[in-house]
């Protein structure tokens, strides 16, 4: 009886997992570069950028981002968490060693208070120059544990919020969708690193907006 109950629960969980929801990551490969996701504005929870010969991309089984409002200095922090993928990787079937984990955090000032995801629409159309002294960029890589390094020598870079939407499903507010592009050229330990052709399409719910 107990085994039957557990089996039924497992089957129910499997079928419920099959039901689509907005938090899942949906990867549609860019036809021009299948290592990157297409630029979309549907809240598909993906991001990607070329990183020299590699890719910095979202990981399909993890929430790819978070946002945090710092009321002390009126700054907003966007963190994208993914991994550094080789050129021949296949999205959706990846096994990711811990050493390849990476996250990118960009903290920038805001003129208006953005203390909830409903107010993210104020970023619509905004482009942020990453070389600005008021902007802070940090990259975390795995070295036994995740270690964050602030990027101080940024030669060029931009984070652009091309479109920000408030999403309603069945007339009920659900999340904010932020979509845009990013690229960074920086120097670390004497080595030049390019994050280029970056794009993101992320759904921001109250679970990941701090």
């Amino acid at each position: 009886m107990r085994k039957m109950l557990i089996t039924c629960m497992a089957v129910a969980a499997l079928f419920s997992a099959c039901e689509d929801n907005l938090e899942r990551s949906i990867w549609l490969s860019d036809p021009d570069d299948i290592g990157l996701p297409q630029y979309t504005e549907w809240g598909y929870n993906t991001f990607g950028a070329k990183m020299d010969d590699l890719y910095f991309v979202s990981y399909s089984r993890e929430t790819p981002c978070s946002m945090e409002w710092h009321s002390i200095d009126s700054t907003l922090e966007l963190t994208m968490t993914g991994w550094v993928a080789p050129q021949d990787y296949v999205s959706g079937f990846e096994y990711i060693p811990q050493k390849d984990y990476m996250s990118l955090s960009i903290t920038f000032p805001c003129d208006s208070v953005i203390d909830s995801q409903e107010r993210l629409y104020l970023l619509n159309g905004r482009a942020i120059d990453l070389t600005d002294t008021t902007v802070r960029v940090s990259i975390s890589r795995y070295d036994m544990i995740m270690i964050e390094h602030e990027v101080t020598d940024i030669r060029s870079g931009e984070l652009c919020f091309k479109r920000v939407q408030n999403l309603y499903v069945d007339n009920k507010y659900e999340e904010a969708i932020i979509s845009g592009t990013f690229d960074i050229h920086y120097v670390k330990d004497g080595e030049k690193i390019w994050l280029s052709d970056g794009r993101f399409d992320l759904g921001i719910t109250n679970k990941i907006f701090w």
Partner: peptide, 18 residues
Amino acid sequence: GKFLYFKSREDGYDTYYY
């Protein structure tokens, strides 16, 4: 799955799926 998200309209910063 049981449903699709249908984008019905866009009104400024607001987007409506059903």
